[in-house]
Write a protein that binds this DNA or RNA. Structure first.
Lengths: 190, 190
DNA sequence: CAGCAGTGGCTAATGGCGTTAGTTTGTAGC
DNA sequence: GCTACAAACTAACGCCATTAGCCACTGCTG
């Protein structure tokens, strides 16, 4: 019988894909093992346990989100860049709800934690957008947190079906983008 | 041996309190039973199972959040009301991270679901704030979603220690509030 | 005050999941 | 081809959620 030929990256990638399909709560070691063609305990040769798997998926998801936002905003500036970033981020969360859910509630252990690094990558991608607005350097961190919070909140609420009533959700995203744009353009004069 | 004298509300309240202490993921039927002085299966006389318990906690948390925001904004208007609402909401999430986490990812089953009702209560509380801004009625839903998303995202990220680097988090909240205020005051002129 | 019903508690048992220990076996390098 | 390492396996444990079935306290009815 040939070996499965797994490694840590393959296990985490398969876990992320499975989480997207069955939901983060439905991601189980047994199901993941079946998915990659192996018995459950064999997974422990590649990941230390479910906690470690979750953290790996979270780091992957953050890195992918950073990449999606970064490439979407390439060569754009101002509102154009903000719009592209918001859509890229939101679309990523909707397309990969399970792996993004893994990022919620993970506590980075320190500055070398891959989760920390990937999280900073997301911020870098948004930084590039904000640099084309005239945000005073001293307020950059606040602006970054504001944009990140707004888009994180919007994407997770939409992903969880948190927007129930009638109005069109895409229109709401445009409205949010417009509000952020107005607010960022007038960032300096308190 | 005297009876414990539990009912559904008491079980859910104890579950919410326990979730705040040990984290939503650490909320287990066994721990909850021990907490209320009863054996695990006895809980099933009051809640249908863990799913039902979670939904009850979520509905409770949303109702409490709505109340916190509603009372904080009593008699206030405009930016004053927005500031009070934002702080009340954020402080509630920080003070009750476990029960608020229960609200993430629950899907309301229908219009009579207590979760739906409580969720609408939260929106009502924010609506009262937005009514003192000159948001065109047609855009009210979008404004509501924008404010809700921003505060939900900010509160959950802060609650999960998602803001790692140096800048003061309370200052960031003030900055977010200021941005929302600017954006809402100029809501109409595209 | 007695009896009766209902309800809230209990014990016992099941199945699934995460995890660990210990064993086998494929595979890469000499 | 032998050896050694790594990747798979089987077996077993403990925790958790859940169900079935039993018992006893409580409150109503006569």
């Amino acid at each position: 019988m040939p070996r499965a030929g797994l490694d840590r990256a393959a296990v985490i990638a398969a876990g992320a894909a499975l989480a997207d399909e069955v939901g983060f709560a439905g991601l189980t070691m047994g199901r993941l093992a079946e998915r990659v063609g192996v018995r459950t305990p064999s997974l422990y040769k590649h990941v230390a346990g479910q906690e470690d798997l979750n953290r790996g998926i979270a780091a992957l998801a953050l890195a992918e989100a950073a990449d999606a936002v970064g490439t979407a905003t390439q060569g754009r500036a101002g509102r154009d860049a903000l719009t592209a970033a918001a859509h890229a981020f939101r679309d990523f969360v909707l397309a990969h709800p399970g792996r993004y859910a893994a990022t919620i509630g993970v506590e980075p252990t320190g500055p070398d934690d891959p989760i920390t690094v990937a999280g900073l990558g997301v911020l870098d991608s948004f930084s590039a957008v904000l640099r084309s607005y005239a945000v005073p350097p001293a307020e950059m961190d606040h602006a970054l947190r504001t944009v990140r919070s707004s888009l994180h909140g919007f994407a997770t609420l939409q992903s969880a079906n948190g927007f129930q009533w009638s109005a069109d959700v895409d229109e709401s995203l445009e409205w949010l983008i417009a509000l952020l744009d107005r607010g960022l353009r007038s960032a300096s004069p308190q």
